[in-house]
Design a protein around this nucleic acid. Structure first.
Lengths: 235, 235
DNA sequence: GCTTTTATTCACCGTCTAGTTACTTATGAC
DNA sequence: GTCATAAGTAACTAGACGGTGAATAAAAGC
């Protein structure tokens, strides 16, 4: 009938693989949203990066907003599942605390996309996450996980008895997340590259120390500090 | 010559006030960028909010990017100047530390725009701030300010001797900033409203406590904790 | 083999948006 | 007063961008 039909006829047409396509779109979207934010992210660019036709993106996710929500939900689930795999219950309170700090640090250092995606969602007042039925079904494991760790530490007379699990979690993540999220402006501010290996390593150590001092009943006697001869145990 | 000219002729034409116009544009831009991010911010909306013609915006700031940069530079200067006005040198180390925490908390709690603007700039890898000649001339006061505070605290045998000023600053701001910046997603995460007055007050107290424990040589004897009967001084 | 379903492609569109052109008028210097 | 300059306005545009209609081909069901 028209040139359109004739042109469309000899399409090479890739082998079908809906799951893979969906996944490629999602990965490309996560990249694009994480590196540009919502408004500056380009739907055409996501399609190009995913190597699929833009139409598919609307087929699977409905809209740019739907796509952002899907990317965010995936990140949210990843974080929750990683937390569940932590298995803190099996180890002693103090090394458990250190392991928790390492986990948070390693996760966000390895997944900076999570940070920018979460920042974007906070800019939008969490309106995607708040109304997401998919994520509401997932109970974040952190509160119980940490409460148990704290309880055991208190029982062993090592931890303070008056610290809440949520406060501790936010403290750990805050120290890790803020440093990584704002290292660009902080580096300008202080005139040094905070993302160089040495400052990064230093900050990781600093977070460990800060958290120990916050949680331990008797922080002055922190093993690390005794080793460095800075304090001496007074028991 | 044309209808255009005839239509344009009978303009009401406001009294001239370039400085006020510039300021109104900047304030509107700060609002708009802070609430929507860069890509979702609308130049037309900024002009509308400022009550000026869009053309003026380009007259003063050249482009959307130029406008964002100007808004950011203003925030940066505001933060620096506020820091300079702190006058920590005049007071004792321990109340000085508490005053510093209060200052950071009060500033970001009262200026949430600073947070979202800085987040947006970090998303862009600080490319506006990095090349801003205007802000490079301003030396941020925090490092020396805090170093002096720490030095005096160490001399008085109250503070740890091995804590860097930059680490301390980032710790304080991190705890404050992360909580405020991410309260929306954190509230969903933990199923409670972290922006309600009570949690906010609690977090402020928590930051004070965390910082005291981090900085004090002898954190177990924190006055606040002694008051609450949680610990007893062991000197 | 035939039908139904669904993944995929191509061509296309209406609107929105940063930025501009062309012009007017207030203000201050002389 | 007048003249240069800067502040201000309205109308306009080129292109980008999110989103869609319709046709097609590959699987899946029978």
């Amino acid at each position: 009938m028209s040139d359109r039909v004739l042109d469309a006829a000899p399409t090479p047409s890739r082998k079908r693989d809906p799951d893979a396509s969906r996944q490629r779109i999602l990965a490309a979207a996560t990249d694009e949203f994480a590196s540009k934010g919502f408004g500056d992210a380009r739907v055409d660019e996501i399609a190009r990066r995913a190597g699929i036709n833009k139409r598919m993106l609307y087929h699977y996710f409905g809209s740019k907003d739907g796509l952002f929500q899907a990317a965010l939900e995936e990140i949210y689930e990843t974080i929750c599942h990683a937390g569940q795999a932590l298995e803190l219950a099996a180890i002693e309170p103090r090394p458990g605390l250190a392991k928790l700090v390492d986990f948070v640090w390693d996760y966000y250092a390895a997944n900076p996309q999570s940070i920018t995606l979460l920042n974007t969602e906070n800019l939008h007042d969490a309106r995607h996450l708040r109304f997401s039925v998919r994520t509401q079904a997932i109970h974040p494991p952190f509160e119980e996980l940490i409460q148990d760790l704290l309880d055991r530490g208190v029982a062993a007379d090592e931890f303070r008895p008056d610290l809440g699990a949520v406060d501790l979690y936010i403290t750990i993540v805050g120290l890790v997340y803020y440093y990584l999220s704002n290292s660009a402006t902080l580096s300008v501010f202080f005139g040094r590259d905070l993302r160089a290996p040495k400052p990064l390593k230093n900050w990781r150590r600093h977070v460990h120390e800060t958290i120990e001092r916050l949680v331990l009943k008797n922080p002055g006697s922190s093993a690390a500090e005794i080793d460095r001869g800075l304090v001496r145990p007074y028991k």
